[in-house]
Simulated scan of single mutants.
Amino acid sequence: MYEAVVDTPLGIACIRGSEKGITEIRVSDDPSLKRTIPDELRTVCTQLQEYFEGSRKIFEVPLQPGGTPFQKKVWEALLEIPYGKRISYMDLAKKLGDPKAIRAVAGANAKNPVWILIPCHRVVGTDGSLTGYAGGLHRKKWLLNHESPSGQTILFS
């Protein structure tokens, strides 16, 4: 298992994974973390940089997040949400076949271990409001505005 630590506009990304896939990306505000990029994680670091620069909308790296079968099912559904689009927690629960599972879907969303690559930030409240984000609502707001189709429109102030 390798770890990369890189700067992003939203904080320091700590990336863990191997040749088989990325297992975790989390964001930190700890300035003491040593920046490093092992060769095995260079591709994901480059793709994250391209995403933040606005030139990448789809990630092309293997993922291997650890979780329960239900969590993995939710995360697979998150991967189907296109760049620049949003879905509500209710719509996600319906898509997975059980509208009553909205809290379980939200819980799985909150436990997403692969920040940005599995786009849990694209899930909003039924009324379109920003709700819950493990990385902080300020980061969710930034990501949604970054992915805004016009590139100029501020969706959330």
Results as ranks from 00 to 15, higher is better:
61 V>S: 14
57 K>M: 15
43 T>M: 05
21 G>Y: 08
54 G>R: 12
21 G>A: 12
27 V>F: 15
70 F>P: 13
67 G>L: 11
16 R>I: 01
23 T>G: 11
31 P>E: 07
13 A>W: 05
38 P>K: 03
45 C>I: 09
65 P>S: 11
33 L>K: 07
31 P>T: 05
36 T>W: 00
12 I>H: 02
25 I>H: 12
36 T>E: 03
48 L>V: 10
51 Y>R: 09
16 R>M: 08
49 Q>K: 12
43 T>G: 06
8 T>W: 04
8 T>P: 14
19 E>L: 04
70 F>R: 10
36 T>K: 03
22 I>S: 01
21 G>N: 11
8 T>N: 06
56 R>M: 04
49 Q>H: 14
17 G>A: 07
44 V>Q: 02
60 E>I: 05
50 E>I: 03
55 S>Q: 06
9 P>Q: 01
19 E>H: 08
49 Q>G: 12
47 Q>L: 05
33 L>I: 07
66 G>N: 15
41 L>F: 08
30 D>M: 01
10 L>I: 14
37 I>D: 11
35 R>D: 01
36 T>Y: 00
50 E>V: 02
51 Y>D: 09
33 L>D: 07
40 E>P: 00
58 I>Y: 09
64 Q>T: 14
60 E>A: 09
46 T>W: 05
14 C>N: 05
38 P>V: 04
56 R>N: 02
46 T>I: 12
48 L>R: 02
20 K>F: 11
23 T>F: 01
26 R>H: 14
20 K>D: 14
59 F>H: 13
30 D>G: 00
20 K>E: 14
38 P>H: 02
48 L>M: 13
15 I>T: 05
58 I>F: 11
52 F>C: 04
66 G>E: 15
10 L>M: 06
25 I>A: 09
40 E>Q: 05
29 D>G: 14
30 D>K: 01
65 P>C: 08
15 I>V: 14
53 E>D: 15
28 S>A: 15
62 P>H: 10
70 F>E: 15
11 G>R: 03
17 G>E: 09
40 E>N: 00
26 R>K: 15
33 L>M: 09
49 Q>C: 12
9 P>H: 00
15 I>W: 10
65 P>F: 08
13 A>N: 04
21 G>R: 07
20 K>I: 10
53 E>Y: 09
19 E>W: 10
12 I>W: 04
60 E>V: 11
34 K>G: 01
69 P>I: 08
12 I>Y: 00
40 E>V: 08
36 T>D: 00
65 P>Y: 08
12 I>L: 07
41 L>S: 07
51 Y>G: 06
52 F>R: 05
45 C>F: 06
64 Q>K: 15
38 P>N: 03
65 P>I: 10
